[in-house]
Amino acid sequence: MSAGAEAVIPILRVTDAAAAVRWYERLGFTLEWEHRFEPGFPAFVEVGRGSVRLFLSEHTGDAGPDTLVYLRVRDVDAIAAEFGAKVEEAPWACEIELRDPDGNRLRIGTPTT
């Protein structure tokens, strides 16, 4: 993503950024960067999948638990197979819902139209 590009990037609260990054890698995300003010301080990381970005923060005030993020993908069946999830058909998409290790909810869907 270029420096001048506009985007909305959800921030999700995590307790262990390294463990969260490993979980999000299973969804096809890769670690873009990590920041800590000092060694041993909470981590703030960015993961990306194509043009999609998420911030994962160990900082307690950055986000609340049980956040819901919708992720539109080309092939929800592949992700469902990776996580052993059952795909549900809605009028607008085929979807699954997953929870990351910190309880954040991801509704993931492939549009049907």
Rank of each mutant, 00 (worst) to 15 (best):
M1K: 01
M1C: 04
A3M: 14
G4F: 11
A5R: 05
V8R: 06
I9N: 09
P10I: 07
P10Y: 09
I11G: 00
L12N: 06
L12K: 05
R13M: 02
A18H: 07
V21G: 03
V21W: 04
V21Q: 02
Y24S: 02
R26E: 10
R26K: 14
L27F: 10
G28C: 12
F29S: 00
T30R: 14
L31I: 03
E32Q: 14
P42D: 02
R49K: 15
G50Q: 06
G50E: 07
S51L: 12
S51Y: 02
V52G: 00
H59V: 12
P65W: 10
D66R: 15
D66K: 09
T67H: 15
Y70Q: 08
Y70I: 10
L71T: 05
R72C: 13
R72H: 10
V73Y: 11
V76E: 07
D77N: 07
A78S: 15
A85Y: 00
K86P: 00
P91R: 08
A93C: 15
A93W: 07
A93R: 12
I96P: 08
E97I: 12
R99N: 06
P101H: 07
D102A: 10
G103V: 03
L106T: 01
R107P: 00
G109W: 04
T110Q: 06
T110F: 01
P111F: 13
